[in-house]
Design a protein around this nucleic acid. Sequence first.
DNA 1: GAATTAAGGATATATGTTATCCGCAAATGG
DNA 2: CCATTTGCGGATAACATATATCCTTAATTC
Lengths: 162, 162
Amino acid sequence: MILKSQVEWALHCCAILAGLPEGRYLSTKALAELHGLPKEYLSKALQSLSQASLVETTLGPSGGYRLARAPSEVNFLEIVEAVEGKARSFTCTNIRENNPCRPAGYCDSKPCAVARIMWEADEAWRETLRRVRLSDLVGTLSEEVPPDIWRDTFEWVLKRAG
Amino acid sequence: MILKSQVEWALHCCAILAGLPEGRYLSTKALAELHGLPKEYLSKALQSLSQASLVETTLGPSGGYRLARAPSEVNFLEIVEAVEGKARSFTCTNIRENNPCRPAGYCDSKPCAVARIMWEADEAWRETLRRVRLSDLVGTLSEEVPPDIWRDTFEWVLKRAG
DNA sequence: GAATTAAGGATATATGTTATCCGCAAATGG
DNA sequence: CCATTTGCGGATAACATATATCCTTAATTC
């Protein structure tokens, strides 16, 4: 059970977009170069963010992506689910129905007890991600990334932002 | 990010083994029939439980599996990790290192901030599973499964338990 | 009008899951 | 001792998904 690498990419890209000045866009090309990622494939992850309305796009030179909302209004789960999908990690195939001792046509009143527990854990995972805002990540990064690297990176970004 | 179906199988099998009288064993064949699962492949899940020392085995006719510990001493996470592995669902590939603005050879003091958040969610998932004991599942099942089905099932099981 | 961009379809490759089959060694019961 | 049954592990195949690339189209900029 491993998350797509696009999840990691999307989160890092959102962190960069969060630092972009109002009204400016950053292209797939720039985001791919900055993170050392395959441009064409990263594009798929960004398209997922676009379909989830987390980012806005514009075409042409100086076009690209920007956040659709303030970083404090975007949480981790939204980004993760945009790329990974909203399906639960545990899928119940109702194998209890195969029990030869069950009367034919018997109908369960509740979902399987095993599934309920697994889904509870899944929800705990989601709730943790829901509680973390994109602005929290940016705050942590601005504290931990050495100031000169932080500055150079955004100079680099601004040079490429339309 | 979807768990192996073997996780579901292992949990249901452990629930059955938990109801087995002291000192008796239940074979792969019986567990596969009871749940309507492919015997050969279910065997792999049971082997995982065996390697994790969650179950004990014995060979020959009337052989099979039994729990290595009391159901109250086994939690969900142990079973899940036995078949799914202990690897975290999020793998950090450290794409921040590809940042062209980083000085060559610069070394990070902490793991990536993105990874730390994703790992925190992963831990919340694990902690939820860690808190649920196998005996809790059996308790829920004994309340929810209709008494006649419950009784018939364990009669069926005992007829096949060595 | 030329260049650049996002979007999406088609396709190829790699990896992982699901599933089956086989041989081996251990245990059972006759 | 012998036939049967069992768990175990290796080998292999079928299938699904993730990863990656290429191409066309339409919109936008300069």
